[in-house]
């Protein structure tokens, strides 16, 4: 089974899995993120269309208000 790494979590890779689907798996409480796939910044408009390759290293940074 091919895997993807999201922060420190390992998930099974699925064909045509998008950033939005990965974010959903992470159960975040709100919806502002920085996403990098294999070091490349992914912009918000690509979250629904950008397909994640197998063995990808994904970083999702959850941004919450307050400061």
């Amino acid at each position: 089974m091919k895997k993807i790494t999201v922060n420190r979590n390992l998930f099974d890779w699925e064909e045509n899995i998008t950033i939005n689907e990965i974010i959903k798996k992470m159960n975040y409480s709100s919806k502002m993120f920085i996403v990098k796939v294999n070091g490349e910044l992914i912009r918000s408009f690509e979250y629904g269309t950008k397909v994640v390759p197998k063995n990808a290293k994904i970083n999702v940074i959850h941004l919450v208000s307050g400061g």
Partner: peptide
């Protein structure tokens, strides 16, 4: 910043 949307704008 205070607001998450501004944080995202600056970081990106």
């Amino acid at each position: 910043f205070d607001k998450a949307a501004m944080k995202k704008m600056l970081i990106e």
